[in-house]
Write a protein that binds this DNA or RNA. Structure first.
Lengths: 216, 216
DNA sequence: TGACAGGTCTATGCGGCGCTTAGATTCTGA
DNA sequence: TCAGAATCTAAGCGCCGCATAGACCTGTCA
């Protein structure tokens, strides 16, 4: 960043935004472990105390970024659903989109789901974006049930399973363990994720045909 | 711990083990964020430098604990599979066991899957326990395919999906986001997890009956 | 028995961390 | 125009991981 280039004026002008960008770049380049407020301030070219005029503490900066992440994820999920030609294809697309988001934006993904780093559950905007994302999944499952593409009955376990499946794939990929095993299965993790997402839709459709009914 | 009770002798005797226990207790009581080598040493009643005679750095202590975790998880998975009356029941039991382990031992679970904390992939014993755990899942899926309880064909995507499903449920539960949504679905997260695990087996069985075949 | 080597622990110090406080500088609007 | 608000710097607190040097204990072997 602009650590060496001195600012023109005493006041930065858009320090808050600059800090957020510097933080993201730092996570991208050196991982979550390298993130400190002092370091972020240094990268942004300001004194170590400056960030505290924009964020009450370190977690607040990270929470702001997490909120951005939830908004980005929601947008991608909405677009993926809208672009899909059928409810079943939408379900597959949601899984792939969730996992791809995590893989392309691991910095956001980490901050969104690590309570020791950020607290998006205490941020109204982040919570609402997360709720709307979840609703996209619920609506898509309802579409699928109406179309007979997935088993009828209580959608709760199905929605939970689909969320957990996508989140598990994303976590295992981003944090490392999946890559090694994927090579033996499908050549690449991308290919394996696609196979899984499509396989799930096929299995759910088959179960629906077989008359399986979900429920407590 | 024994911070206030002075040791009888200059040498501790079993400091390594004491540090591991103190670290686990610290994570349990105050979370991962509270773990520092100095703090662990204080809880164990030794000087801040003492741990470095047993672990080269902080990550090594955490990696040792992660290795223990993989061994514990493997044992539980092996037992769960052995106790199940059928291949299909074994599959359900594996999911429930994985998720329950994470919920009951979040300290271990975190250390096993957070590369910024520990590096179990660089620990031979941990890697082997993880491989054996994965093999338990592969074997169980193979049993299910032979019994016709899950679709035939390439087991890769299925094994991956089941692992990701369990890991996603575990992560979402341990890190918070699942609890809120589960209340609306099944009353409690435990109940929801059970419903999901059983639902998955039912859906897979239905898909097998419908003649679904997995594969690239 | 006693010297000594090696393992285990303490003491001290380095730079970096989150966060606080006090004070300097700039911007804003009455 | 000018006071007050907003933004930034400087300095300091106790904590951290880790390195080094030295104190202590214990097992070993002459």
């Amino acid at each position: 960043m602009s650590a060496n280039r001195p600012r023109a004026s005493y006041h930065h002008g858009s320090l808050r935004e600059t800090l957020v960008r510097a933080c993201l770049e730092l996570i991208r380049a050196e991982g979550i472990g390298a993130v400190s407020l002092r370091r972020v301030a240094r990268e942004a070219g300001v004194s170590p105390g400056a960030p505290y005029h924009h964020f009450p503490d370190r977690a607040a900066l990270l929470t702001a970024i997490a909120g951005e992440g939830f908004a980005m994820l929601e947008e991608r999920l909405v677009d993926a659903r809208a672009a899909a030609p059928s409810p079943s294809a939408a379900l597959t697309a949601l899984t792939e989109t969730y996992v791809r988001f995590a893989h392309e934006q691991p910095a956001y993904f980490h901050l969104m789901f690590r309570p020791e780093l950020a607290h998006p559950d205490k941020d109204e905007a982040a919570k609402e974006a997360a709720d709307r994302s979840f609703q996209v999944l619920c609506d898509t499952v309802a579409d699928c049930q109406r179309a007979g593409d997935v088993p009828a009955g209580d959608p709760g376990p199905l929605v939970t399973a689909l969320w957990a499946l996508a989140h598990g794939l994303a976590s295992l990929w981003v944090d490392g363990p999946l890559d090694g095993r994927a090579k033996g299965f499908a050549g690449s993790t991308e290919a394996l994720v696609a196979q899984v997402a499509q396989g799930v839709a096929a299995v759910l459709a088959g179960a629906a045909r077989a008359g399986v009914r979900l429920g407590p």
